[in-house]
């Protein structure tokens, strides 16, 4: 499938800080791609480079088959962008805001906008400045979806929202993406927020891509493993590279298997932990996988060798 966003070897530096360092990523069309990473990982910078809000120092980005540096009105008619930092004309009422955005988009779908208005439960006569943060995000989302964009870019859309609003927001977005089949590129520092949405997951850490994989494959690949040993003891010096964050608690050894295969796991346990009495592999949520990886990155300071880092190119 042709990627709707294709980032090749992106580099962006702010003074002495390297924000993005050689990032290569393909965002497939028609899917929801979660762009994950801890705070300061380089997510927002990458997105701003994609939307020509920042100029890359190095590398190339193609968005909707156009060089990101040359994105213009024609391309922005097909891109919806919502960001936590985005300025909104707060002096407008919701209705004025919709009326203001409408003429800019020839493909503006007024009934759809009305539907979104009702769906998001936005009060038309209230000024944006009087709305809560969550409601403002919904208004921004409305203004970015009502023209049925081919690509929706959401930069930390859930940041600062209370759980209820976040849930509503996600549900609304989920329904729409399912209905419309849009390509969504959503960044977040918490995978739990996008777990329900994401078809694909990309993880960035310190400006470098650590992982880019289908969500289902990822979940199939990761397991939490608990091994019960005959007696207490320390772990051997050499363990398989796919065992992440191994921990010992008495006779129990716990780790995350990043290349899960039942037979191979049994073999590896027998080989490295000969006194193992039993082991149990449990499926992980995306959040658990993200936390496990994040811990690993923090400990190792770089990508886990042999992980499923791959580009969609």
């Amino acid at each position: 499938m042709k990627p709707i966003i294709h980032i090749r070897d992106l580099q962006k530096r702010f003074r002495k800080t390297v924000a993005v360092d050689g990032l290569t990523l393909a965002v497939p069309e028609g899917k929801v791609t979660a762009f994950l990473g801890p705070n300061g990982a380089g997510k927002t910078t990458t997105i701003k480079c994609c939307l020509n809000l920042h100029s890359p120092d190095c590398g190339e980005i193609s968005v909707l088959d156009h060089d990101s540096r040359r994105l213009g009105p024609e391309q922005f008619r097909h891109i919806g962008y919502v960001s936590e930092n985005q300025e909104l004309p707060l002096w407008m009422t919701v209705r004025q805001f919709i009326d203001y955005c409408r003429p800019m988009y020839p493909n503006w779908d007024a009934p759809f906008a009305e539907k979104l208005l009702r769906q998001f439960d936005l009060p038309p006569g209230t000024k944006l400045s009087a709305l809560s943060r969550g409601m403002r995000m919904k208004a921004a989302l409305l203004s970015s979806l009502a023209y049925r964009p081919r690509l929706v870019v959401l930069d930390e859309p859930f940041s600062g929202l209370d759980p209820l609003v976040r849930d509503e927001f996600i549900r609304g977005l989920l329904e729409l993406t399912e209905e419309e089949g849009w390509s969504v590129f959503v960044s977040s520092h918490d995978i739990a927020e996008v777990e329900r949405l994401a078809d694909r997951v990309a993880i960035i850490h310190r400006g470098q891509l650590q992982l880019d994989e289908d969500a289902a494959a990822l979940q199939a690949r990761f397991r939490t493993v608990e091994v019960v040993r005959a007696a207490d003891g320390s772990l051997p010096a050499q363990l398989p590279a796919s065992w992440l964050n191994p921990e010992v608690a008495g006779r129990v050894v716990r780790f995350t298997e990043s290349r899960f295969d039942e037979l191979q796991l049994a073999r590896a346990v027998a080989e490295h932990l000969p006194d193992a009495r039993q082991h149990q592999a449990t499926a992980m949520t995306l959040r658990e996988i993200f936390v496990a990886l994040a811990r690993t990155y923090r400990l190792n300071g770089s990508a886990v060798a042999g992980e499923g880092k791959q580009s969609g190119a």
Partner: peptide, 13 residues
């Protein structure tokens, strides 16, 4: 000069 202006990513020439 803004990078987060509302119109920065809107199709206004």
């Amino acid at each position: 000069a803004k990078t987060d202006a509302f119109l920065s990513t809107r199709p206004l020439p």
